[in-house]
């Protein structure tokens, strides 16, 4: 059992953590090496939750990924990732965010080229 000093230190750590990371907190399951983590994303909802879950689930290293909205009157989501083996869950989380950014960038590029007049479209050759 942790003595009161240790408990106080961990509480202070927590307060500091929240200062540095106002939007993203992490909760790790007891007895794991960071491969089961719940991320709390503040001020987010299904918009990011569902699209990010899709991108994370597309990662073969991920055993489980799911999210929930904690309560309708709280604007935050709990985003859970469990990985296979000992890969830290933060890695697929980061990869998911990067992949989603990549998708958006490509959708944006394609959309903007599509809106150009036909004679200008040829200037933008598809990357490949």
């Amino acid at each position: 059992m942790a003595d009161s000093g240790e408990r106080k230190a961990s509480l202070e750590m927590k307060t500091l953590w929240h200062l540095f990371f106002p939007n993203l907190w992490q909760v790790q399951a007891d007895g794991t090496d960071g491969n089961c983590v719940t991320f709390m994303l503040h001020d987010e909802d299904h918009t990011l939750g569902n699209s990010l879950r899709y991108m994370v689930m597309k990662n073969p290293d991920v055993e489980f990924c799911g999210y929930c909205i904690t309560h309708p009157s709280e604007s935050k989501i709990n985003f859970r990732i469990q990985t296979r083996g000992s890969l830290p869950a933060v890695e697929p989380f980061r990869k998911g965010l990067n992949d989603l950014m990549g998708v958006c960038q490509h959708v944006l590029d394609t959309f903007e080229v599509r809106l150009l007049p036909e004679e200008l479209r040829g200037l933008f050759v598809k990357r490949g």
Partner: peptide
């Protein structure tokens, strides 16, 4: 539409920035 796509990118960037702190 283009602004909506940029907003979703901004959401991702917000958390990536925090991960990289």
């Amino acid at each position: 539409v283009t602004e909506a796509i940029k907003i979703l990118m901004g959401k991702c960037q917000r958390f990536l920035n925090e991960l990289d702190t």
